[in-house]
């Protein structure tokens, strides 16, 4: 299935979870926040939150600013 991951369209296995999407990017979840279709998914729910075709997944962290 295809999902939109930080503005790139990527191919993930059917049934992939938020944790799988982070693996795809090569990041550990520490210090990151994930939103799926505009809703925050807490770290504890990464492994049980399944994505579906067309989902938008945004992965964010703190950067220099302000």
């Amino acid at each position: 299935m295809k999902v939109r991951l930080n503005d790139d369209i990527v191919e993930l296995a059917d049934g992939a979870t938020v944790a799988d999407a982070l693996d795809h990017l090569g990041y550990s979840p520490n210090g990151l926040a994930v939103a799926v279709d505009g809703e925050v998914v807490p770290r504890a729910a990464h492994r049980k939150t399944r994505l579906v075709e067309g989902t938008t997944v945004d992965v964010l962290s703190a950067v220099q600013g302000g």
Partner: peptide, 28 residues
């Protein structure tokens, strides 16, 4: 203060490590 942005290879981590090392509280 720190900003919150989508991660990429350039901006991943970094600034928080500096703040932690200096004992400064981050204000997002």
């Amino acid at each position: 203060t720190v900003a919150i942005r989508k991660v990429d290879a350039e901006n991943h981590s970094g600034v928080l490590d500096v703040l932690r090392r200096l004992g400064i509280d981050p204000l997002p």
